[in-house]
Simulated assay, not measured.
Amino acid sequence: MDAKDMGEDLEKVLVTESRINARLGEMAAEIDADYAGKDLLLVGVLKGAVMVMADLARALHHPCEMDWMAVSSYGAGTTSSGVVRILKDLEIDINDRNVLIVEDVIDSGLTLSWLVGNLKSRGPASVEICTMVRKPLAFDVELDVRYVGFDLPNEFIVGYGLDYAEKYRNLPLIGTLAPHVYRS
């Protein structure tokens, strides 16, 4: 899928595929340097982080393990419900492990804040956060986000793992949907 496939459903492109790939390379280099000589466990937050985590892991020169969690606070809408549920938990014990949470987007930061607290209660050596997109509302929650791909405006975005009603995740760029898509 690309921008042409979206037709009039894509309002505008905010981050191109080439900018995403370049920034992933930069973040991978930072992560390689920060974790030199240390074990690293990437924890992807399903479903949105699939694209980010796969491409980030391939860009790393540092060996790493991967595991996945699925948490939900959205449903099918465009705003968080505020109630967090674990839909899929980790399979790997994170005690004394260096954990890097990989996210597609930090909207309000509430879900991620809850997740960080949950993981820290499991005794890891460290817990850090890597996200492709951070929005302005995320600054209202006390979260130390170590690696940020892009700070974007508080618009509803899709692509590169980000969805609307489970669609548009496979768009290789980040853009906004035309209002007629989600107001119908």
Rank of each mutant, 00 (worst) to 15 (best):
V52S: 00
G82Y: 07
Y35K: 08
K38Y: 14
E26H: 08
I31Y: 11
L60P: 00
L56T: 00
L90K: 13
K47V: 00
A33G: 09
L56W: 03
A76R: 13
R23L: 00
V52W: 09
T79S: 13
N21W: 04
I86L: 15
P63E: 15
R23V: 02
S80V: 01
L24G: 02
M51S: 11
N21A: 07
A76K: 12
G44E: 04
M51W: 13
G44L: 05
L24M: 05
I86A: 09
S72P: 11
G75H: 00
L42F: 05
I31P: 05
V45A: 05
V50Y: 15
V43P: 13
Y74L: 03
V45Y: 09
G75C: 06
R58E: 03
V45R: 09
V71I: 15
A59F: 09
A70H: 14
M53H: 10
V45H: 07
W68D: 05
V43W: 13
G25L: 00
G25Q: 04
L90H: 12
H61Y: 12
A49P: 06
K47Q: 07
D55C: 00
R58T: 01
E30M: 13
L41N: 10
H61P: 02
K47L: 02
P63W: 14
M51N: 12
E65G: 15
G37K: 14
K88F: 13
M27S: 12
D55P: 00
L60G: 01
K38L: 15
L24Q: 01
D67S: 13
D34V: 11
E30S: 15
G82Q: 02
G25I: 02
A22R: 14
L60Q: 06
T78N: 05
D55W: 04
G48N: 03
M69K: 08
V43E: 14
S80G: 07
G48K: 04
N21F: 02
G82R: 04
S80C: 03
G37C: 08
K88Q: 15
N21T: 02
D34G: 13
V43G: 12
E65C: 10
K88M: 14
M69F: 03
D32T: 03
D39Q: 15
W68Q: 11
A54V: 08
M51A: 12
D32W: 11
L60F: 07
G82L: 03
G25P: 00
E65V: 07
R58H: 06
D32C: 01
